[in-house]
Design a binder for these strands. Structure first.
Length: 435
DNA sequence: CCTGGAGTTGTCCTA
DNA sequence: TTAGGACAACTCCAG
């Protein structure tokens, strides 16, 4: 009779340190088999040159190398998670499966199926809070309904953090519990149907830069400075611990900590109002009939609108999988308010292109920009892309970095005149929002 | 239930 | 030149 084992299933938590579910698995008393599954339900929708798969792959290799001296390494599989885990339970004597919570609608449905399959085999499925400090109903109003305004949410969040503290889950101290033995090498990217691509966002592993955090509030709005943390992708895939980030924010930068609270705010919004994935948080905004001109959309995507800040941002996104936050607001406002294109089109484009794409933040911020969301910018607050340029890239450093033909005849004229677009937006929004 | 203050990140116009 | 109100009221939230 072989000795029973537990599986730790990595999903959005690709790290060995301060990992809640992994920590609990390592303390379970059983040997731990670390597993990652490339989910074909997700991968089949991605183009072969998607930049996120190399990011994940890179970090899996790093985890594997770290584990090798003391264990078998990480077992990396490819397929539908329910069937993959089912076959693992056929091939190994599995006592239970451990993982961390994932709050997205797809993940919730998947985990439910996994749990039922395991249950039918007498195997328990244990999951833990890891990617946020507070989840589900932990930060709600006194009548236990969810907050839909950020500021009071953040006040209670901060208060709870002070009262309860930030827990540690030192999984890195329990390395003796990994299953030993020999496993195959990891699949190559080409085995998964993806091409390698050079990574700009941190091959060397995540680093919280105290200097950037200390000056974050002053610097963060100037895209040319590159003084944002660029930790979004690490937070998305869990290659950094959010608790470590929160501790750093607490120590060095209230402004950045606030951004982490926004992240949790939008995660809770998606949790409590899953319909936002498909429609406006405020239902009356679903009445808006968008122009949705495909030529305009194409020009926006390609960075050919004739508005330098918009175009620079869209080209940065295409080239790097990243866009500076200030510029994200400008391009999102331009698409929805100047071009009157459905925010869901822009949301989908970002979802395809952003390395740091995360459903709840992307959705929440697009709805914020479009004015359709909870606690959103009022619809009459319309960014002027030229004013934004003057304020935040007056010396055109960011613009020239991404638009080599800027200032030549090659660069297009604005596809729409600002004051005309502004008035049109105000009239269209007010028309459809009238009761 | 009532009440009053507040609400991420703007822009434009007028005095 | 600059400061302040308009933009639209409305809903949320805490006391």
């Amino acid at each position: 009779m072989p000795e029973p084992k537990v599986i730790f299933w990595f999903r959005r938590d690709l790290r060995l340190n301060d990992n809640h579910g992994l920590y609990k698995a390592l303390l379970s008393g059983y040997k731990v088999l670390p597993v990652f599954i490339f989910d074909t339900n997700i991968l089949k929708k991605l183009p072969a040159d998607d930049k996120r798969i190399p990011f994940i792959h890179h970090h899996l290799v790093a985890v594997h190398e770290k584990l090798k001296p003391q264990s078998c390494g990480i077992k990396v599989l490819h397929g539908d998670p329910v069937s993959v885990i089912q076959s693992l339970t056929d091939n190994y004597q599995i006592h239970s499966v451990y993982a961390n919570h994932d709050y997205e609608p797809y993940a919730l449905a998947r985990d439910k199926q996994v749990e039922e399959m395991l249950k039918s085999r007498g195997i328990s499925f244990h999951t833990f809070k890891d990617q946020v400090l507070f989840e589900k109903n932990e930060v709600v109003k006194s009548d236990s309904t969810p907050y839909v305004v950020f500021t009071p949410f953040s006040r209670l969040w901060l208060q709870k953090m002070e009262v309860e503290g930030i827990p540690d889950f030192p999984s890195e101290l329990h390395t003796g519990q990994y299953l030993s033995g020999k496993f195959d090498d990891l699949p190559k990217l080409s085995d998964l149907g993806f091409t390698d691509s050079p990574l700009k966002i941190s091959e060397s592993g995540p680093l919280i830069d105290a200097g950037i955090l200390q000056d974050y509030a002053e610097n963060r709005n100037f895209p040319a400075f590159e003084k944002t943390t660029k930790l979004g992708t690490h937070l998305r895939f869990g290659t950094i611990s959010v608790r470590d980030c929160i501790k750093a924010g607490k120590k060095y930068s209230a402004a950045w900590l606030n951004e982490l609270i926004w992240r949790e705010f939008f995660m809770q919004i998606l949790w409590h109002f899953p319909y936002v994935e498909k429609s406006a948080f405020r239902p009356e905004y679903n009445r808006i009939v968008w122009n949705n001109n495909p030529d305009d959309f194409e020009k926006w995507c390609r960075g050919k609108t004739g508005y330098p800040m918009v175009d620079a941002g869209m080209r940065e996104l295409e080239a790097t999988g990243f866009m500076h936050n200030r510029v994200r607001m400008v391009v999102a406002g331009f698409l929805t308010k100047h071009l009157l294109i459905d925010w869901k089109w822009g949301e989908a484009w970002f979802a395809e292109k952003l390395l740091d794409y995360e459903l709840s933040s992307n959705n929440g911020n697009w709805q914020w920009a479009a004015g359709t969301g909870c606690d959103a910018a009022p619809y009459f607050r319309i960014f002027n892309p030229t004013e934004q340029l003057k304020k935040f890239d007056a010396n055109l450093i960011y613009v020239k970095r991404w638009i080599p033909e800027y200032g030549t005849a090659q660069y297009p004229e604005p596809i729409i005149e600002h004051s005309y677009a502004r008035k049109r937006c105000l009239s269209v929004y007010s028309h459809y929002l009238k009761p």
